[in-house]
Design a protein around this nucleic acid. Structure first.
Length: 702
RNA sequence: GGCGAGGUAGCUCAGUUGGUUAGAGCAUCGGAUUCAUAACCCGAAGGUCGGCAGUUCAAAUCUGCUCCUCGCUACCA
C-alpha cells in the first residue's frame, strides 16, 4: 500500500544516450516526476530525485557505427544534449548522473557480486557466434547473413529488415561478421543468469496481492501478465566490449547486461550525489535543499531503510524492468527496499500517429527548445494537461496553442495582469488594506483555502493532470471574483472597498505563485519577482490571505505569457511533416545489390505469372493469406504474409508473379507451394508485381 | 491467435467501493461586461457511456459473449 514516506527516493527513467529524446518521453516520465518532487520539496519532505544518462548496451556502439565515430563520442554528445534539455525544461534533478562514471561501474559490480556471492546467480554455457579475427563474441546485430525466410542477403542476426522477421543468429544462412567480414565460428560462452522464476511467490505476494489496489491498472495488468506467463532465467551478462566488466575471474570480454546496470544507476547516482555533497564539489549534483551530516553511508538511508518510499517514474515500455527484474534484484540482495509505486504512463501520440524519433515523427526536446526557447512552462503545461495517465493520449500543435492561448494567457496570465494593473492604477503598485469582507469575499476565501489540499491530493495520488486542472481553476476563481465584484466600477465611489477586493485578488495571485511552482517553475519565479516575494514561502503557507502585507510594494506588471499565433503553429505542423518526409527518403537507402550470380544460378528459378482464383484469410494469423493460384500447369495453394497490405477480396482475379519451384513448406497447417513476389516500397507497403497486360497463366518470366 | 490496456459529448479527456437529472476543458450558440493580451464572467445546446445478453430495487461502474483501437507475442517461403 501507498505509505506516507519518512523520506522519498524518486527516480525518472534513465534516458538511453543513443539519440535525442522527444516530448513523449517528457510526458511519460520526467514531467510528472518533476512535479511530484517539486511538490514534495515545497512541503519540506526529505526527497531525493535522481536520473542520468544510460550509456551502455549494444545500441551505443551501433549508433557509433552509424555516425562513424566512437561509442565514447556518442555518449558524450547525447549526454550533453539531454542534460542541457532537461536543465532548460526545469527538471529539478538533485543529480543527473551518467552510467559511464566510475562510481557506477563500482556500484554495479558490487551489486553483481552481492548476488553472486550469495549464490543467487546461475552459470550457463551456450554456443554463440564468435569472430576469430576480431577476437570477440558477436552481438546479434553484428552478424549478417541471408535471411532464411525471404532470402534477403543482408539480414541481421536479430532481425531481417527486408521481411521484418525476428531472427536468431543461428538461423542465418551464410552468416558473416560485420567486423571482419569472415564467417563467425560457434564457440562456447558462459553467462550468469538471474533465475527470476525463483521469486514468483514473492512477486505474487508483493504485486498481485499487496499492490492490487494502489498500482495503476496498466502497470498491474502488465505485471500480472508476466507473472502468469511464468518467469525464466534471464542472462545478466553479455559478450561485448562496451559496458561494465563482469567482476569475476575468467570473465574477459564479458560485461553486465545493460538492463542490469541501468537501474542500478539510480543507486550510483544517489551515492555520487552524497559524495559530491560531502566534498562540496559539484560535478553532477545540484543542491536543491540543505543536507546535514552527510557521509559515505548516507545514500543507504534512501535505498535500504524501510521508511523510505521509492517511486519510479517511467513509460510503459519499462514496466517489466522496474516492476519485475529490478525489484527481484533489489529483493534478492536482502539489503534493499523495493518500489512503493511505479506510476508508468502510457504513450503520447503526435498528430494522429505514434511518436518515433527514427521515423521523424516526433518533437525532440531540443527542437522544441530551439523554436520556443522562452517557453519551457508552456510545454510543461500542455503536456501536463494531457498526460497519458490511463491510456495513450495525443499531442497536437493546435492543442498546444489552445492550452497556451485559452488557459495560460487568457485565464492565468490574464488574471494576474488584471489584479496587478488594477492595483497599479488605483494603489500605485502597493498592496491595499483589507477592509471588512462581505459574503462574496468570504466565499472566495473559503474556496481559496480548499485549493492547496485539492492539488496536493491529486499529486500524491499521481493524478498530475487533475492537479494541473485544479491549478487553472484557482486562476478561474480569481477571474470570477473580479467579474463579480467589478472593482473598476467602484473606484470612483468606494476606494476602500476596491482595496479590499484587490487585496484579496493579490492574495490569490500570491497563492498561485507558490502553488504553480511544481507545474510551472519558471512562471512561478517570474511571478514571485513581480510580486516582490522576499521570503521563501512553502506549501503550508498557501490557502491563506496573509501572504502579502498591506503596503507591500511591487514592480511594474509584466505579462506572464504571450499568445501564440496561428502562423507559428502552422509552421510547426509543416516542419513536422517535412521532417518525416525527409527521414523516409534518407533513412532507407536503396539496398546495395547482392553478390553476382551466374546465369545458371538464375535459371534455376522458375518464375511465372499466375492468376489468383481464390483468396482467404488464414485463421489465427494476422499476416497470412491463403491463395489458390492458377499456374497454367496446375492449381496450387500458396500462402503469403501480405494480409496487412491486401484484402482477400481485392486479390481474387489478380495476376501475380510467382516463384513456382520453391520447395514447398508447411505454414500454419497448410502447405505452401510457391512464393508470391512483391516489391516493398520505402514506406514499407507492399505492391504486387504484375505484367503490364494480361498474359496466360503459366507465362514464364526471364 | 495468446496476454495486457483502452473504447464516455464534434475534439482532448475525468468518472472513487454500482445509487438521485453522466462531468471538465476546448470548439459551437446566446447573454453580460470593458479592469485585462477582443481576454474574463454567466448560460444553453450537445452523449441510448462500442454492441448484445445477464446479475440487481438500481449498471458507464459487476458477469458472459461480441466488435474496434493500441502494446507485447506467434505466424511472414
Amino acid at each position: 500500500m501507498d505509505k506516507e514516506g519518512k523520506r522519498y527516493m524518486v527516480t525518472a527513467a534513465l534516458p538511453y544516450a543513443n539519440g535525442p529524446k522527444h516530448i513523449g518521453h517528457l510526458a511519460g516520465a520526467y514531467i510528472p516526476a518533476d512535479v511530484y518532487v517539486r511538490y514534495l520539496r515545497l512541503n519540506n519532505r526529505d526527497v531525493l530525485f535522481v536520473s542520468g544518462s544510460d550509456e551502455h548496451g549494444t545500441a551505443i556502439p551501433n549508433q557509433a557505427l552509424k555516425e562513424n565515430t566512437t561509442p565514447q563520442a556518442i555518449i558524450d554528445k547525447y549526454d550533453a544534449l539531454l542534460r542541457d534539455c532537461f536543465e532548460k525544461l526545469g527538471m529539478s534533478f538533485d543529480i543527473y548522473h551518467r552510467t559511464s562514471e566510475k562510481i557506477h561501474h563500482e556500484t554495479s559490480q558490487e551489486f553483481f557480486l552481492t548476488l553472486y556471492n550469495k549464490g543467487l546467480l546461475t552459470e550457463e554455457t551456450s554456443e554463440q557466434y564468435y569472430d576469430d579475427e576480431a577476437k570477440v563474441f558477436l552481438a546479434d546485430r553484428y552478424i549478417v547473413g541471408t535471411c532464411p525466410k525471404c532470402s534477403f542477403a543482408k539480414a541481421y542476426g536479430d532481425q531481417c529488415e527486408n521481411c521484418g522477421s525476428s531472427l536468431s543468429p543461428r538461423e542465418l544462412i551464410n552468416p558473416r561478421s560485420t567486423l571482419s567480414g569472415k564467417p563467425p565460428v560457434l564457440k562456447l560462452t558462459k553467462h550468469w543468469y538471474l533465475p527470476l522464476q525463483n521469486y514468483e511467490d514473492w512477486l505474487k505476494q508483493w504485486i498481485l496481492e499487496s499492490h492490487k489496489n494502489d498500482w495503476r491498472p496498466n502497470v498491474y495488468g502488465q505485471c500480472k501478465s508476466w507473472i502468469d506467463a511464468g518467469l525464466q532465467p534471464r542472462a545478466m551478462t553479455r559478450d561485448l566490449d562496451w559496458g561494465i566488466k563482469v567482476p569475476l575471474p575468467n570473465a574477459e570480454g564479458k560485461v553486465l547486461y545493460v538492463w542490469f546496470d541501468a537501474p542500478v544507476g539510480y543507486i550510483s547516482a544517489t551515492r555520487a550525489f552524497f559524495k559530491e555533497i560531502e566534498k562540496g564539489s559539484f560535478k553532477y549534483a545540484k543542491q536543491n535543499r540543505p543536507f546535514q551530516h552527510v557521509n559515505n553511508e548516507t545514500w543507504r538511508k534512501y535505498w535500504q531503510r524501510k521508511d523510505t518510499k521509492l517511486v519510479h517514474f517511467i513509460g510503459k515500455d519499462n514496466i517489466v524492468f522496474h516492476c519485475i527484474i529490478f525489484p527481484i534484484m533489489l529483493h534478492a540482495t536482502g539489503e534493499y527496499i523495493v518500489p512503493d509505486q511505479v506510476p508508468a504512463n502510457e504513450f503520447m501520440n503526435l498528430e494522429g500517429d505514434k511518436m518515433s524519433t527514427s521515423r521523424g515523427w516526433s518533437i525532440e526536446m531540443h527542437e522544441y527548445l530551439e523554436d520556443f526557447p522562452t517557453k519551457p512552462d508552456e510545454l510543461r503545461y500542455a503536456l501536463l494537461t494531457n498526460l497519458p495517465e490511463t491510456k495513450d493520449s495525443e499531442f497536437t500543435w493546435k492543442d498546444f496553442q489552445a492550452k497556451n492561448n485559452n488557459e495560460l494567457v487568457a485565464i492565468f496570465g490574464n488574471f494576474i495582469n488584471r489584479a496587478l494593473v488594477l492595483t497599479q492604477k488605483y494603489f500605485d503598485n502597493r498592496v491595499p488594506e483589507l477592509g471588512v469582507m462581505n459574503e462574496i469575499d468570504q466565499r472566495v476565501v473559503t474556496e481559496l483555502k480548499s485549493f492547496p489540499s485539492r492539488i496536493a491530493d491529486a499529486i500524491e495520488g499521481y493524478h498530475f493532470r487533475e492537479a494541473a486542472a485544479h491549478l487553472m481553476d484557482l486562476a478561474r476563481l480569481g477571474n470570477k471574483y473580479l467579474a463579480e465584484t467589478e472593482p473598476w466600477k467602484l473606484a470612483k465611489t468606494d476606494l476602500p472597498r476596491v482595496g479590499t477586493i484587490l487585496n484579496l485578488a493579490l492574495q490569490v495571485s500570491a497563492n498561485l505563485a507558490i502553488v504553480c511552482e511544481p507545474f510551472l517553475p519558471f512562471t512561478s519565479k517570474k511571478l514571485k519577482e513581480m510580486l516582490s516575494f522576499s521570503q521563501a514561502m512553502d506549501w503550508r503557507s498557501t490557502g491563506e490571505i496573509n501572504l502579502l502585507k498591506a503596503g507591500h510594494g511591487f514592480a511594474e506588471p509584466r505579462l506572464l505569457f504571450e499568445k501564440i499565433e496561428d502562423l507559428v503553429i502552422e509552421n510547426q505542423v509543416y516542419k513536422l511533416n517535412e521532417k518525416k518526409r525527409k527521414m523516409e527518403l534518407d533513412a532507407q537507402p536503396v539496398e546495395p545489390s547482392k553478390p553476382e550470380i551466374s546465369f545458371d544460378e538464375f535459371s534455376k528459378m522458375d518464375i511465372r505469372v499466375g492468376k489468383i482464383l481464390k483468396a482467404e484469410r488464414v485463421e489465427k494469423s494476422k499476416k497470412l493469406l491463403k491463395f489458390q493460384v492458377d499456374t497454367g500447369m496446375d492449381t496450387r495453394t500458396v500462402l503469403s504474409g501480405i494480409a496487412e497490405h491486401f484484402t482477400p477480396e481485392e486479390m481474387v482475379g489478380k495476376q501475380v508473379t510467382l516463384l513456382v519451384n520453391l520447395a514447398p513448406r508447411k505454414i500454419m497447417g497448410f502447405e505452401s507451394q510457391g512464393m508470391i513476389l512483391t516489391a516493398a516500397d520505402k514506406d514499407g507497403k507492399l505492391r504486387l508485381l504484375q505484367p503490364s497486360d494480361v498474359v496466360a497463366p503459366g507465362s514464364k518470366i526471364s
